[in-house]
Simulated assay, not measured.
Amino acid sequence: MVRMSSRRTPRRPHSAVRAASPCPCGLPAEYGACCGRLHEGRAAAANPEALMRSRYAAFAVRDPAYLLRTWHPSTRPPGLELDEGTRWLGLEILGSTEGSAFHSTGTVTFRARWTEGGRPGALHERSRFERLNGAWVYVDGDLLD
């Protein structure tokens, strides 16, 4: 599904998702007006939930460069390889704490569904986020159930 590596990470995502496609994050918006603008660096995530959604979408469109850019330097791997055989099917945000303009940390609990080799799976995690130099970044997470 995801492998950490020391290999150079490609800059351009490989995906059939286009600007006018529905955004993989699940919000009722086109990719280009939603997570696509964050992936391209035209906007920054306003809060941990927005960053979580954009990171999920980056997995869906296979954009490891964005994932690495939005990962806290203290926990970021040197590289990331996304498995071409993994298909992300949906994101469900289950809850969040803190993460407002008045906070420097926040959490998002989510469930992400996927298939790999025809077998379904789900990732249930409580992710931790921190504001670093004014931008939200993913720190780490605890797997649930």
Rank of each mutant, 00 (worst) to 15 (best):
D142A: 15
L132C: 08
V139R: 13
F102I: 00
A45H: 10
E98L: 09
L89H: 15
Y31F: 15
A58L: 04
R87E: 13
L27A: 11
T75Q: 10
L80Y: 09
F59W: 13
A29I: 00
H39Q: 12
A20H: 14
R62V: 01
R76K: 15
T70K: 00
T70E: 12
N47E: 15
A19I: 06
T97W: 02
E49L: 08
C34P: 04
E98M: 07
H14C: 09
M52K: 04
F110P: 01
T9F: 05
W114P: 00
C35R: 00
Y138Q: 04
L27P: 00
D140W: 07
E81F: 04
N47R: 08
L94H: 04
G95M: 08
S54V: 12
G79F: 07
C23P: 03
A19Q: 10
P28G: 07
R119L: 11
R53V: 07
C25W: 06
V139W: 11
L143N: 03
P120W: 08
H39W: 06
R119F: 09
M4T: 15
S54Y: 09
P120C: 05
R69G: 12
E98I: 00
D142R: 15
I93L: 14
R111H: 05
G36E: 06
V139C: 08
V139A: 08
R131Q: 13
R126K: 11
H103L: 00
Y56H: 10
L132M: 06
P24G: 08
S74G: 10
G141D: 11
R111F: 01
T107C: 03
G79H: 05
P13A: 10
E40W: 02
S21N: 05
A112C: 07
L132D: 03
R128F: 07
R7S: 14
C34I: 05
T9R: 03
Y66E: 02
H124K: 02
L144I: 13
C34W: 02
R3N: 09
S104N: 13
R42E: 15
A45Q: 08
E125G: 03
S74L: 12
T86P: 00
G41T: 13
D145I: 01
S100F: 08
R76G: 04
C35Y: 02
V2M: 13
A65D: 14
E40C: 02
R119P: 00
S74R: 15
M52G: 05
G141R: 01
R37G: 03
T86W: 03
A122Y: 07
P10D: 13
L143W: 12
P78Q: 14
P22R: 10
E84V: 14
Y56D: 07
T70I: 08
R128Y: 09
H39M: 11
D140N: 14
G95H: 11
R131H: 11
R62S: 10
